[in-house]
Design a protein around this nucleic acid. Structure first.
Length: 834
RNA sequence: GCGAGAGUGGCGGAAUUGGUAGACGCGCUGGAUUUAGGAUCCAGUUCCGUAAGGAGUGGGGGUUCAAAUCCCCCCUUUCGCACCA
């Protein structure tokens, strides 16, 4: 090995990496044209990142996965678009800046530069000419444009309502940003607060967001399931009950109309305005008031944890069931959510778990109206839990005997005919709250005028620039509201004195359309040119973490559909294939964090082992969708030996035979060793190509290791074959170890053209199976030996050969052969008796 | 609690989707080289057994000539949802 290394220049990764990075840059190898042209297009997108201090090893993994795909697609002849940018507005940047006492703008800019440098050092094939940062006025000008377009269509509206308030960050959070009742960012318990907020009416798109998931076969099922559940569509019936004395209607939503004769009480949410209009007597009114106060003091965390213990208070009032005219008690109960359905429920203790618990606690009657089947009879007195399945209706007058869908339909039809009810679809998904009372975000482009109301800023005046303020600290109201020069303006409509909206937008708004801006990043007049955008859309592969399943990935589909509706793009879904990469943790499976001191920086890795060895090590550690517990020594050793001991030294063996890479070799022109290597080569091409389709680069690398090992083990006389193996190996490894491959490619004499301009190898279909094949011989399903037979052998000769085998014979002796099963090219199984 | 996924050597992980389980790599053992260490190379490495042979893909059952792979029950684990009427 040492003698070999003397002949070729040592692999000096530092110089070689920067050499090729410079060259790619000069040649603009990764810059995509405005239109893909005649070649098939491939839009590869990795989720852009928030620019924190520096790149994490998890980012490193994410980007090299995309990079490998991009480079291979390029070699497959596609016109690839692989852009990158920065999700630069938002709370984390602002909080970090505050703790360092640096202005968020300065801090963000610094970090974009630091992270950008690290990224450039990894040699990822991003088209940097399309780089965007969501905090640039040229970018957020069009975030504001998006807002106004939504506003014009009535899909952006302002409303007073209960919001999730994080007392630590002093801002409102979207439902998606509240996890287990806590702020996703800082972990503080979220409070309910009433406030005027801007909302995007994403619920208008709820049906399509669910239905169109069926048109996304390239999305992982778990993400689609999560989105379906998050949107939470349910079909049911809205029925108007009536409040006894006031005759006010009390609509409720139910998915179980077939249980409506079992209603024994009603419950309304403590937040419901209806409570005030009930006309309760003073005693009950006081109890209800006390209960409301108590509930208001409960945090979301408490509410979530008391799932078993339901409580509530009786109002002293009654409601009438329109089906049977019965009067039932009306309660106020915490377990009724004000934000879902009508904020009131009909309670059927016999057939609903929650109602059952409540009824038992407060001694409310339980009435059975569904039986499991016609034989089994339930007894309300002795039931230990609610029966929540479908079955024939009983005690339900004219509906008795009907069950399941027929029952639901009959009961629903009845209500619709009598006009006291209607079929309805309800969603768990709520409108997207986007106002943030923070400084570092995209200003909301609305002017509040006393006479004209909410007036959008005219396009000519966009962007509404975020003013440079002294004090950007959060104080519970937007810091912008204290900046008079910003707030005071004139109404674009009437010219009178008016005020700007003081809030900024949730960063998820900024990240909902960035993939479109990449398609025309310098356009000053439009968010993007329609032709350019449609030429590249949809995204062919979108790579990112599962964490965004119910947040970003729903918002971004919503935006895409909206833009489709208003005629800006002609695809209904933004991305045809989604890939979730696995996370990187430390070797104990723990998240890397500065406080634990277990952070592995990609830069350290590059310094010590070079970018390409680091890449190979990461790829080799696990398939891309699985988590990796990173251990530098364990993971790097193998790939490093492979590169220095086997792969790179191949170049020294190159014979400059001027081989045509399209040439296939015929059996009779090769020795048997050569034939073996040729077959191995083609099997490897096949396996590596398949590995790329599944993004399973670990198996790609292992087959390349096998190929180089087998190649080293034999003497190759045929110069063309020798060189073909070397060149194709370089091509196959190129997307995974790009600098190394370029260097080797050049050492083999390809001075002019990048290996990425060469054509991805195709395998010789006649050479993926050897001429001779090993067939396993089993007796009663257990392996007793193997025989070598020519490819395509019939059963009889294989059976003959098998019987020659001593061990096999030993197991056949004295037994009766009942059956012989032959799987051509695989195995032969004797089934024996006795 | 509900839903989805996963469980294969000491470790990361393979297995053409029902057909020779453990590819490839790490680690380990022995040997070669070396003043020594490191590095490198060769051989071995699922477990029990000197061997013949047997057992073996979380556990138990089943289908099949043949199961890591398909079916049923259970255990463990990861993730998501968690009063959605």
């Amino acid at each position: 090995m040492t003698e070999r290394r003397d002949k070729i220049p040592e692999y000096d990764f530092k110089n070689i990496e920067s050499k090729w990075q410079e060259r790619w840059n000069e040649q603009r190898l990764f810059e995509a044209p405005a239109h893909p042209g005649d070649a098939e297009k491939f839009y590869l997108l990795v989720m852009f990142a928030y620019p924190s201090g520096d790149m994490h090893i998890g980012h490193f993994r994410n980007y090299i996965i995309g990079d490998a795909v991009a480079r291979q697609q390029m070699m497959m002849g596609k016109q690839v678009l692989h852009p990158y940018g920065w999700d630069a507005f938002g709370l984390p940047a602002e909080r970090a800046a505050i703790s360092r006492n640096i202005h968020p703008a300065v801090w963000t800019k610094q970090n974009i530069s630091v992270s950008g440098n690290t990224l450039k050092k990894t040699g990822v094939s991003f088209d940097w000419s399309r780089e965007v940062a969501s905090c640039d006025p040229e970018y957020y000008k069009f975030t504001q444009w998006m807002f106004i377009e939504l506003f014009k269509k009535g899909l952006a509206y302002r409303q007073r309502g209960f919001v999730n308030w994080c007392p630590e960050d002093k801002t409102v959070l979207a439902n998606e940003q509240v996890v287990d009742g806590r702020c996703e960012r800082c972990g503080t318990g979220v409070e309910k607060k009433e406030q005027v907020q801007w909302y995007f009416k994403i619920t208008d798109y709820a049906n399509r967001l669910v239905d169109d998931l069926d048109d996304l076969p390239g999305w992982p099922d778990n993400v689609k399931t999560m989105q379906r559940e998050w949107i939470g569509r349910s079909y049911g019936l809205e029925v108007d009950f009536t409040i006894e004395e006031t005759s006010e209607k009390l609509p409720i939503f139910t998915t179980r109309p077939d249980t409506i004769f079992g209603v024994t009480f009603m419950a309304i949410a403590p937040e419901s305005e209806l409570i005030e209009r009930l006309g309760m007597d003073p005693e009950h009114a006081a109890q209800v008031e006390a209960y409301k106060k108590e509930v208001a003091g409960r945090s979301d965390i408490d509410r979530a944890s008391i799932t078993d213990d339901k409580d509530g208070v009786f109002t002293g009032k009654y409601a009438i069931n329109p089906y049977n005219g019965e009067r039932v008690q009306l309660w106020v109960a915490d377990y009724v959510l004000s934000g879902y359905g009508t904020g009131a429920v009909m309670a059927v203790p016999a057939h609903d778990t929650r109602d059952f618990a409540f009824a038992r606690k407060y001694d409310i009657p339980i009435r059975v109206v569904i039986h499991p089947d016609s034989e089994t009879v339930l007894d309300a007195q002795t039931m230990s839990e609610a029966f929540t399945e479908y079955g024939p209706m009983v005690n339900s007058g004219q509906f008795d005997g009907k069950s399941g869908k027929a029952a639901t339909d009959a009961v629903s039809d009845f209500a619709e005919n009598k006009d006291f009810g209607r079929r309805r679809i309800n969603f768990k998904l709520k409108d997207w709250s986007i106002s943030r009372q923070r400084y570092w975000g995209c200003p909301i482009p609305i002017i509040h005028c006393a006479t004209c109301g909410e007036v959008p800023v005219p396009f000519e005046d966009l962007p509404v620039e975020l003013p440079d303020v002294e004090d950007y600290h959060p104080k519970g109201r937007s810091p912008l509201s204290d900046v008079d020069s910003y707030m005071n303006t004139t109404c674009p409509k009437c010219g009178g004195e008016a005020q700007r909206d003081p809030d900024t937008m949730d960063t998820f708004v900024c990240s909902s359309w960035y993939y479109l801006r990449y398609l025309d990043p310098l356009n000053e007049n439009e968010p993007f040119d329609r032709d350019k955008a449609n030429a590249w859309l949809p995204i062919d592969l979108y790579i990112g973490g599962v964490t965004h399943a119910t947040g970003h990935l729903i918002y971004f589909r919503f935006f895409h559909k909206f833009l489709y509706d208003i005629g800006w793009i002609n695809s209904k879904e933004p991305a045809t294939r989604l890939f979730n990469h696995g996370m990187v943790s430390d070797s104990n499976g723990e998240v890397m964090s500065k406080s634990k001191g277990n952070v592995v920086s990609p830069m350290e890795l590059f310094e010590e082992h070079g970018v390409d060895v680091s890449r190979l090590a990461m790829f080799f550690a696990a398939p891309s969708d699985r988590p990796v517990g990173w251990d530098t020594k364990e993971f790097v050793t193998g790939p490093e030996k492979f590169v220095y001991g086997r792969l790179y030294p191949m170049v020294e063996n190159y014979r400059s035979s001027d081989v045509d890479l399209k040439q296939y070799f015929k059996s009779d022109e090769l020795t048997s060793d050569e034939r073996k290597v040729y077959i191995k080569l083609n099997q490897t091409i096949k396996r590596v190509s398949e590995s790329f389709e599944r993004l399973q680069f670990n198996t790609a690398i292992s087959s390349l290791m096998e190929l180089t090992r087998d190649f080293d083990a034999v003497e190759i006389q045929n110069d063309h074959l020798n060189d073909a193996v070397i060149l194709k190996t370089i091509q196959l490894i190129a997307p995974l170890a790009p600098h190394l491959a370029e260097e080797m490619w050049q050492l083999c004499g390809f001075d002019e053209d990048s290996v990425f301009k060469s054509k991805w190898p195709e395998y010789d279909p006649k050479a993926v199976i050897g001429d001779v094949i090993k067939v396993a011989i089993q007796v009663n399903g257990r392996l007793r030996g193997t025989v070598e037979v020519p490819v395509g052998s019939e059963k009889a000769p294989v059976e003959e050969a098998a019987k020659e085998n001593e061990k096999v014979r030993a197991h056949l002796d004295g037994k009766e052969i009942v059956k012989v099963i032959y799987v051509p090219g695989r195995l032969l199984n004797f089934v024996v008796k006795g």
